[in-house]
Amino acid sequence: MKELFAKRLKSARILAAISQDELVARIEGMVSKNAISKYERGEMMPNGKVLIVLAKALGVKPDYFFREFNVEIEQIEFRKKSKLGVKRVNAIREKVVDIVERYLELEQFLSIKSEFRNPIAHLVIKNQDDIENAVNLLLKKWKLGLNALPNVIELLEDKEIKVIEIDAPEAFDGFSGWADRKFPVIVLNQNFSIERKRLTALHELGHLLLNFSDQLEHKEVERKCFQFAAAMLIPEETFKIELGGKRTHISLPELVSIKETYGISIQAIMARAKDLGVISEHLFINFRKWISRNKTEAGLGSYIGKENSNRFKQLLYRAASEEVISLSKAANLSNQKLAAFRKEFVAI
């Protein structure tokens, strides 16, 4: 019991992105930093009163400290800007672990056995041609065709990938990894534009699926994942139908139209055009200079569609309506108060 509590307390503190000193301040010195350290080392346990105060200070329910179900997320590919900071990075990781734990626990209640298979694992990625071949094979294996992907997140969830959206600072892009070495996980910043979400989700899919040559450095692997994401959104054959084989100039209305149809940013379209040899390096550099004044592409069209992760909630409502779990347990799994869950849940 002490070991479980110790691990959970430290996890909750990291999730809150605070130090032991800051936790002591939040609980107004009810116990000392030395006591907190002993709790986290599993050397002693708090009494009931302290436990409740700790839970409130850390924003978790008291039973969080004794929840035995646990997962490990490994092989993490974490993309962030340096200004995010170590505390925020660790907090995001702990938040994702907590969500994945509840996700997998819910699937266990519903007797859902996720079995993910990578249909392109045998391909070794060295260059741009390898990326195009991998995308074409994946589209064929997943029976997606060459048209625009209407909902990337829904597609990934249908393929047994856990997609999690979190409220994070702009400095956080996303990450991917494996829970318990067999459940693929993709994490997205819910505050991004829809085009950025789609590209980021598929970039992280690249990290999960692509078997990169050992000769590629990390920076080149990242670049190949972006190329993979853009190719998934608009495959080479489709791209050249839209823009032609060679261009010396491209009009802005053309780019906006493709953006609105395929859900890919104008910047990613132009990068893809350069990678496929449709435009010259010189034209691409001139475009980069022009777009640098409007990186968010404000006023340059937007994809009309939805990109939200809904599978966890759908499974939760199913489990509650079928009385596989109680409303109280459903609220606990969704990290809500019972009254709030009752308000949004209506069984027919």
Rank of each mutant, 00 (worst) to 15 (best):
W290M: 08
D214A: 05
G59L: 08
Y317H: 12
L205W: 03
F69I: 08
D167A: 01
M44R: 15
N308L: 14
L54H: 00
F172S: 04
L315H: 10
L58T: 06
V89T: 15
E254A: 13
W290C: 00
A330R: 03
H218Y: 14
R93P: 10
A25L: 12
L233T: 10
Q267H: 06
D21M: 06
P150M: 03
R272G: 06
A12Y: 05
S19A: 01
E115I: 04
I131N: 07
I131M: 09
K10A: 10
N286D: 10
S193N: 13
I27P: 07
E204F: 00
K49V: 15
F284L: 06
D158Q: 14
I258A: 07
K33C: 05
G174V: 05
K7R: 11
I348T: 15
L123K: 12
K33R: 08
V163I: 01
A339V: 14
R79P: 00
Q215S: 08
F5R: 05
S114D: 04
E94K: 12
A16H: 08
I92C: 06
N211H: 08
A121Q: 02
K49H: 09
A340N: 14
A268T: 05
L123N: 03
E281W: 13
S292K: 14
N335M: 15
Q190I: 12
K259G: 02
K219P: 05
F226P: 00
I120R: 01
L233I: 07
G174N: 04
R293M: 12
V96L: 08
